[in-house]
Design a protein around this nucleic acid. Structure first.
Lengths: 352, 352
DNA sequence: AACCTACTCGACAACGTTGTCAGATTGCTA
DNA sequence: TAGCAATCTGACAACGTTGTCGAGTAGGTT
């Protein structure tokens, strides 16, 4: 059934290959790394031995010895590998890394600062060549050692604090303002805010954008129409339901995060208000266009962010240097329907 | 601004720590690994040196030397880290691995057998302790070496071919049959099949389940109502549109894969048939319950599959042994609306 | 024939760490 | 005081690999 030789307990090493081929380990190494300068006869002898033993080089040992010490692995410290934003980012990193035969460590932080540190510690300890970080903590000074040691680090989605590294961010402020402006344009003045944990910098920025856009239109938001610290879908659903069933409910909603948007949609749907109360969400999500009404969003571009982050990483790994820079990937308002439901102040011609 | 010492070019090693603390490297090692048997004075001396230098152990070098040689990293070879099934699986693996401080390498195969081999090669070469594989190739004999060497391998979603390892599968046949039976129960006899690449084993099983369920009801499917090899959303949308606009269109659809279901929904929606033609999809997806009508699916449980796969991996890593076993995670039909749209043969009391 | 160059090859050390083992120190008992 | 066990410590080798370097061989030139 199995004609392959029983492994001599444990994986074969270069020594085993060399022994079988009748050459030195160094020559065997030369053959498997393609270094060259080996007689054709010995090359085939080594190759035969490799095949016979099923030898696989130990890349770990090799990178310990090799000049640059690279492990050809980079680490992605994400919010949650299973959420669409993180996984799109992850995928974009992979696509760029793939061209260079670089592998990816991925881990989920779940907004837990301790987990962030634990992950980064684990990854650096495993000699990841670079770090892509969506931080959850409020200070990343602890990364100074890594950065000084020359490990490329790029922050994504949220800015670094206490440390100076490249960052790929979204203009949350402008995106939120754009959403609010859009709702005002469609005749709304009573626009509620439902947002993520205020501890998250991007949530604060989006809230700022919301407030400033309203104030630009001379609107003062009602305190009872502002809810923070919604992180999970169910929290958002409950908050939206409460707000919409109170007296004097808002005519439009700005939901400042993915899951908050979805939770809010559930509330609207179950209250039968989905065709009446306007909604613009921050961050696009799959099937938003298939819902009834289709959901208007301010879309981020996680793929583009990932590609950009990866390219910064690899340029640094290639030896390029420049002062730490923050890049902004633009947002895009995608009008699909829910954000164009007319408000009480809609001019007939404006609400189309 | 920066009070930390400039790193002595490159990361500090245990030797640097030992030198600074005035002890041998072995004693420094004893302290950082918590091996014990070291005077309190030296312990603090070493700890001070560690702090001062910002020393981080090189886990890679350590695992090279340590008895079991474990790297505390496992590899997940997924279809596409950014699709919901894969990322839910990934997340479940991470949750189990987290308890043991094990990290995860993840990569996307994209249904490309060559990519599958390349990924597995890269991961084994980096000494991953174990492999979780959602295969794309039709034969995985090439893994024999790894398995013989004692690396735990678990296949998920698709069975191993040419090699005998643990597997965590879905009962695709029964799930598909259940979907078709459900549609028949609701008065449909002309039920179309839209499915994934026939090269994928699970797609074949689902198709089998479809055919057998129909034949159990004495129904012979029409050739023009069977389409294979749909993999992307757009392909499915085009195929569904073609089928639904031909003469004598089916009254119900069984879509045998995630993206096929979504593409088909788009076609139904744009043709205005979404409230008329029944649909059951294989594999659940986010927001299926928020669509109009809500989408009835045969749900798999990727989280449970991931947890099970991880537990098998870790039990093997803990030294437990047993003959390679295939586990089946049950599917669950979730009736939400689209699958209960009545067909022409519906009894008034059955269609509810 | 003496010399040189180009090429092939292997001994050795080293990457950063830990297992082994034996030496040194301490404290206790007889 | 000698003897011995218990405790602490460091020298050394080894994990699997590759960089360095010098030895060996063949071929070509004077």
């Amino acid at each position: 059934m199995s004609e392959e030789p029983v492994a001599p307990r444990g994986r074969p090493t270069l020594r085993d290959v060399a022994l079988l081929a009748g050459v030195s380990t160094k020559t065997a190494s030369r053959v498997v790394t393609g270094e060259g300068g080996v007689t054709a006869a010995k090359v085939t002898a080594v190759q035969d031995a490799v095949a016979k033993l099923g030898y696989r080089p130990n890349f770990t040992a090799s990178s310990l010895r090799r000049a640059n010490g690279r492990t050809a692995a980079i680490a992605a410290v994400l919010e949650d590998v299973s959420n669409p934003f993180s996984s799109a980012l992850h995928r974009a990193l992979e696509d760029v890394a793939r061209d260079r035969d670089v592998m990816i460590f991925a881990g989920s932080v779940d907004e837990d600062p301790a987990r962030e540190r634990a992950l980064i510690h684990a990854f650096t300890t495993r000699q990841a060549d670079a770090l892509v970080v969506v931080p959850a903590s409020d200070n990343q000074r602890y990364l100074a050692g890594e950065v000084n040691a020359g490990t490329p680090v790029v922050f994504v989605d949220r800015p670094p604090v206490g440390i100076d590294v490249d960052a790929v961010l979204v203009d949350n402020h402008a995106g939120a303002a754009q959403a609010v402006h859009h709702l005002v344009t469609h005749g709304h003045r009573d626009i509620a805010y439902l947002g993520d944990l205020l501890a998250i910098a991007t949530a604060r920025q989006r809230f700022q954008g919301y407030k400033e856009a309203l104030s630009d239109h001379g609107i003062r938001p009602l305190a009872e129409h502002i809810v923070h610290d919604l992180h999970a879908e169910v929290d958002a659903e409950a908050a939206a339901r409460r707000m919409l069933t109170a007296e004097a409910p808002p005519t439009a909603l700005f939901t400042a995060q993915n899951l908050v948007t979805i939770g809010t949609l559930r509330a609207l749907r179950s209250l039968g208000l989905h065709e009446r109360v306007a909604l613009v969400g921050f961050d696009d999500f799959p099937l938003a266009d298939l819902l009834q009404p289709p959901v208007t969003v301010v879309a981020q571009d996680p793929s583009e962010m990932g590609r950009l982050a990866a390219s910064l990483i690899f340029r640094r790994l290639d030896g390029e240097t420049w002062p730490p820079t923050t890049h902004h990937v633009p947002t895009r308002l995608i009008a699909r329907g829910s954000g164009e439901l007319p408000g009480p102040h809609a001019h007939p011609e404006a609400a189309q």
